[in-house]
């Protein structure tokens, strides 16, 4: 097919499977770490705000490949020998938690102040107010940008190739090195990425339009 054997194409698709695995790892990890980051960024405690703000600034100011390298070598000097998937997963977690935290902080703060005040008038405790009044409204607003950011996560897993993680980019590179048909190989890889990312982009836009209408 297109001058490639079935095995070679299957090899590329095997890489695509690992890209999806790493994306899921990054999203789940990013959610688990990103929620506390968002809460800390939106909290009224100065110290929490400063520390979480520093974390976000730091991660957003360092290229993801460099984060991958730091994690990769950091684990190895700790005396552990782990597969590249773990290092890449940790790096993706750090990366996406910073961005997701920032997105969700915006959503929490976009809930009108009167909602907080109304909660207070109803004699809700701080936690109740946050969980039952603010969070549901913030979540609704958070859906479109979060889906949009998923596209970024999938695309950015391609940087894991720098630490030798076997993903779609890596497998395409290997096949290109052995066949030297870059247009065919990388077009196939690009189409696979596109097939994963484009539906999510469309969905994000649709969610956003629906949110704006209501």
């Amino acid at each position: 097919m297109f001058g490639l054997t079935i095995e070679q194409i299957a090899f590329i698709f095997r890489g695509a499977g690992w890209t999806i695995v790493l994306s899921l790892l990054g999203f789940v990890g990013g959610t688990l770490l990103g929620l506390p980051v968002a809460l800390a960024r939106a909290s009224r405690r100065r110290s929490l705000k400063i520390v979480s703000g520093l974390f976000v600034q730091l991660v957003q100011g360092i290229p993801l490949p460099v984060i991958m390298f730091v994690v990769y070598f950091g684990i190895s000097i700790g005396g552990y020998d782990v597969p590249a998937l773990v290092a890449a997963g940790i790096a993706m977690t750090l990366y996406s938690s910073a961005y997701l935290g920032e997105i969700w902080r915006g959503c929490i703060q976009a809930v009108p102040k009167t909602q907080w005040e109304a909660g207070e008038c109803l004699a809700l405790t701080n936690t109740q107010r946050f969980v039952f009044v603010i969070l549901p409204q913030a979540l609704r607003m958070a859906v479109p940008p979060t889906v949009g950011f998923l596209v970024q996560i999938v695309k950015n897993t391609s940087y894991a190739v720098v630490i030798g993680f076997f993903d779609l980019t890596y497998s395409a590179k290997v096949i290109n090195n052995s066949t030297f048909m870059p247009f065919t190989v990388f077009t196939i890889a690009a189409l696979i990425y596109f097939a994963i990312c484009f539906p999510m982009s469309v969905m994000a836009r649709r969610f956003e339009r629906r949110l704006n209408r209501t």
Partner: peptide, 9 residues
């Protein structure tokens, strides 16, 4: 909707 690194390659 595609990664920069693929475009570069």
């Amino acid at each position: 909707n595609t990664p920069l690194i693929i475009q570069v390659f």
